[in-house]
Amino acid sequence: MNASTSLRNGWQKVFGAGAKSERPPPGDTSHGTILYLEDISVSFDGFKALNALTLYIDAGELRCIIGPNGAGKTTMMDVITGKTRPDAGSAWFGQNTDLLTLTEPQIAEAGIGRKFQKPTVFEQHTVMENLELAVAGNKAIWSTLASPLDSRQRTHIEEVLETVCLQDRRDMRAGMLSHGQKQWLEIGMLLAQQPQLLLVDEPVAGMTPQEVERTAELLLSLAGKHSVMVVEHDMDFVRSIARKVTVLHEGHVLAEGSIDEVQNDPRVVEVYLGE
């Protein structure tokens, strides 16, 4: 058992099931690690999409996940967000939140946001309205747009607009944005919900070189304030943002380290980079 596992298990023993009042709040990261995936296995019709996968993400970390098609990257994110239940293993958010006991909406409320490869925004609404809807959460669209947000919420939206560089597009319908701007808006919609962990799937697919550069700047700016997991195939982009890289292969971690370390790992070259 490694140090991270021992630490989490120690907290579970100290704060047992009957000591809820003394537990740290959901998403507590006072001991540095925000996500624990331990021995996660998932099978689909006999195919092992994840095979005893163990992975840890630290609070404020920017982690890049790479690997060939079928390596288990999407299934891993599905497990984290509650879309897929594993056959075995454990998944914890912070020190005390068992992700495997929560529904998808509960996981989102706990502080995990996911951005899919294809942007999903309300194209008939303005950029500002999209962010207002994100802040409001699960309220009805029309009642949300008819009810003004409070000053704290509006201040937060203004900060998000600045972060994703869409201040001058606030009154533009989302459907009129470029592909890259839609991607940034969706990231902004996640930020509006103030997640602790963001899962970002292939953010630069289909972007112009200028949009790719801006996306790199955006994700780098989020690290530290949030934990960010980026799944990406574009190795030039990965190199531009990577602090630590995890390589998945056949449902488990093949290699982990700096971008130079993984690019020079013979196993990684053989199964992925040599393609």
Rank of each mutant, 00 (worst) to 15 (best):
I112H: 11
G113K: 01
R114H: 06
F116G: 00
V121L: 10
F122W: 13
Q124R: 15
T126A: 07
V127P: 01
V127M: 08
V127I: 05
M128G: 06
M128D: 07
A134G: 00
V135D: 09
A136G: 08
N138C: 05
A140S: 15
I141A: 12
I141P: 07
W142H: 15
T144V: 09
S147A: 15
L149S: 11
R154D: 07
R154S: 13
R154N: 11
H156Y: 12
H156W: 15
V160H: 09
C165T: 12
C165M: 11
L166Y: 06
D168H: 14
R169L: 04
A174Y: 13
M176C: 12
G180K: 13
Q181D: 14
Q181F: 09
K182C: 08
L185I: 10
L185Q: 02
L185K: 09
I187D: 01
G188Q: 07
L191S: 07
A192T: 02
Q194P: 00
Q196S: 12
L197A: 11
L197N: 11
L198H: 03
L198N: 03
D201L: 08
G206T: 01
G206H: 05
M207A: 04
V212K: 14
T215Q: 02
A216N: 09
A216D: 10
E217M: 03
L218W: 00
L219E: 00
S221H: 03
L222M: 04
L222G: 10
A223E: 06
H226C: 01
S227R: 08
V228E: 03
V228Y: 03
V228K: 03
M229N: 08
V230Q: 08
V230D: 04
V230T: 02
V231P: 10
M235E: 02
M235K: 03
D236P: 01
F237G: 02
F237C: 00
V238E: 06
V238Q: 07
I241D: 04
I241F: 04
K244T: 12
H249L: 04
E250C: 02
G251A: 00
V253E: 09
L254I: 00
L254F: 05
